[in-house]
């Protein structure tokens, strides 16, 4: 399972880099979303893949009786997804605002804060 997921992460990163190299801000944002999903998958895989059982300890025992899934990466990924969700929602609104006030999503034309060089 791990090799398969590693290849998937690679594909996601490749796609993300391709999208992020585009001049359009929207494509860049889509690339970022792909990249953050790749990062989340990387955390998930690095916790080692185990089959099935939820990490719950039955009443009266100190350790779970069988091999259970590693709960920590799941918690980390969940946190990262929630944070990423908030950041991208903000970035999306910012992109909409940028399009409204600057009239373009082409990153080459966004030179209000840094004037173009003369000549």
């Amino acid at each position: 399972m791990e090799p398969l997921l590693s290849i998937l992460i690679g594909v996601l990163v490749a796609g993300a880099v391709y999208l992020m190299l585009a001049r359009s801000l929207m494509r860049f944002l889509f690339g970022l979303i792909l990249l953050s999903n790749a990062a989340n998958l990387a955390i998930f895989v690095s916790g080692r893949m185990t089959a099935g059982a939820p990490p719950l300890v039955p009443d009266g025992m100190d350790v779970p009786p069988e091999v259970v899934a590693n709960a920590l990466p799941q918690a980390l990924v969940l946190t990262a997804i929630v944070i990423g969700f908030g950041l991208f929602a903000f970035a999306l609104i910012l992109a909409v605002r940028a399009f409204r006030s600057l009239g373009t999503l082409n990153t080459d034309d966004m030179r209000v804060a840094e004037p173009k060089e003369k000549g």
Partner: peptide
């Protein structure tokens, strides 16, 4: 609250 404020902002923007 935050999801609604984001959605309302986007909805009113468009």
């Amino acid at each position: 609250g935050s999801v609604l404020s984001i959605v309302f902002a986007l909805e009113e923007e468009v």
